[in-house]
Each structure stands twice: as C-alpha cells, then as structure tokens.
Design a protein around this nucleic acid. Sequence first.
DNA 1: TTTATTTCGGATAAATTTATCCTATTTATA
DNA 2: TATAAATAGGATAAATTTATCCGAAATAAA
Lengths: 144, 144
Amino acid sequence: MFSKACEYGIKAAIFIAVNSSENNRVSPKEISEEIDSPQAFTAKILQALVKNNVIKSVRGAYGGFEIDKDKIATIKLAQIVYAIDGDGIYNGCGLGLHTCNENHPCPVHDKFKVVREELRDMLENTTLDQLASDIKSGVSFLKI
Amino acid sequence: MFSKACEYGIKAAIFIAVNSSENNRVSPKEISEEIDSPQAFTAKILQALVKNNVIKSVRGAYGGFEIDKDKIATIKLAQIVYAIDGDGIYNGCGLGLHTCNENHPCPVHDKFKVVREELRDMLENTTLDQLASDIKSGVSFLKI
DNA sequence: TTTATTTCGGATAAATTTATCCTATTTATA
DNA sequence: TATAAATAGGATAAATTTATCCGAAATAAA
Ligand code: FES
Ligand code: FES
C-alpha cells in the first residue's frame, strides 16, 4: 500500500510528535531505534519531511528533530504520505492507466474510486496528535 | 496500490475473458498489445495465473490463453490479486509491523483496517464477467 | 514424420526502491 | 576561537521489481 519510505516517515513523525509534546528533541538514531528502521535511510526521509514543513530540524550540537507543539494537532497523515509517496495513491488509476478519468475509465474505476476516496478521507482526517496519544497511553505500538 | 505485475494480470484476465466469451483464444502478443504492457513480462504473469487456475493455457500451434466460459462469472478479482501479489494487501500491517495484530496494533490499525476491508470486499465481490461486459459495451477501457 | 506455431521456464539485464557510507556544514558550549 | 555534536547531502551499494532474451517442450496440421 505505502512504500517502506512512507511507512518509516509516518512512524518517525509520530515518534517525534510524542517527544515534542514533552519538549524533547530526538535524533535519527533514537528514531530509527524506536521505529525499527535503517538509520541513514530514515535520516533521508526526515530530510524530505523537513523540506515539506512537516517536521523541523535543528542543526549542530544539541540539535535534532521536533515539531512545534501547537502544530502537532494540525498535521495530517495525508501531508506525510504526500511528501514521500506523492499523490499517486489519491489520483492515480488503480490499473495503471495514464490518468484516472471518469470519461475514459478503466474496468475497476467505479469500484476502486470508492476505496481510494475512503483512504484519502482517512488520511486527511487523521492528525499526528491522535496517533501520538495512543502511543503515549500504550494502546498502540511503533514496532514489532 | 497494486504492483505493475498485478495491474497487468488483472487487465490480461479481463481481456482473455472478453475473448473467451466469444470463443476466441488469445496470445501474449495480442494481450500485451491490447493492455499496453511488455510482452515477455506479461507472459510470465500469465504463467502465474495458469498455475493458480485463474486462466487456462493451450500449448502448441493454434494454442493460446482462455478461460472456460462458464467459469468467467465465478472468477473474482481477489483470486488474481492473490495469485500475483499475495495476501499482504489483506492481512499486512499498513505501517509494516511484522503482523497486523489487534492486540498489538500499530498507530493506524483501527482506521487502516476499515479501508483494507473495504478493498477486500471490493476484490471479493467483483467478478471477471462484470468487468468484461463493460469492456465489451465500450463503457470502460484497458489502455491509455 | 516433419514443420510451423505456441507456451514454458531459466538466465540475464534494466530500472527502481531501499539502504549504507562519508564528508561538509551548522551550531552550542567550553 | 576551538571543539564536539548534530543535520545536510552526495556518492555508492544492495535488494527488489520490472523487463528482455532464448532455447526447450508441446501440439496441430501438412
Ligand atoms: S480510470 Fe482506473 S481508477 Fe479511474
Ligand atoms: S497493526 Fe498495523 S494495520 Fe493492524
């Protein structure tokens, strides 16, 4: 469904959100340990999230990654997926036609569209703070 | 969402269904032309569908691929996806945890499960003859 | 039985995604 | 200002997916 990069990106963002809510800046090392991902690869994905203004990086000693506390509740899963995997999952044709087009639909268009839009709604209505709070309360998990 | 292989497999199966309903056997060459896919790669995918009893192959002169006419209405999209991409899309965790587990859920488990099950229902309730009939009537398209 | 046709299957190559490594740049503190 | 710590970013490698090639096996028809 999502690329590995996107999976790592989502989990990393949640972990950063959890820590930022406690005024704690985190490093790629901590992140990759907590979400069980390759460190250098994860660092690259973090850079993409920084460029897309999903997270903030602070360079130099005592630096790390963080998210403005008051921004955590406004960041949607959709932004993360878009930053890393692009918009193919929303707009692309399920059977790989060049474009998904109502007027030139592939055989599964009508049925696929429903699923795709449910996925989009889900991603656009899920914020980082919702996901972070379940991690904090031990209801959900970032690895294993 | 689906792999390229799976996209080709679905489109190929639909094209074969269309032709078999008219007692017409087709070759990988015709198939790949009609669904706009690489021929040799498509042939490999057809072999997988044959092994999984989705389609039938007839070797030698005047051979080709076909589907038993009375079987076309019983073949579900789910069987094709399963034969090529496996069951990851149904059972796998959206964030890549080793297994999707109610008792050890990832942060998006509850929300992702809904989308995943809608996708599964769609695939399990869509048969080849439904898709083939839209192609025959010119309502849907296999390429461009 | 020979020939032409066609799928099967293994080997290989190209492209993309995933992953690692190393150096440059930035920054807080001593 | 010097030093240590940390992200940025380019180069490269490994793994996976996508794609191609070619000979073997099967089959219908001449
Ligand atoms: S045309 Fe294929 S999903 Fe819309
Ligand atoms: S545990 Fe991640 S989707 Fe169920």
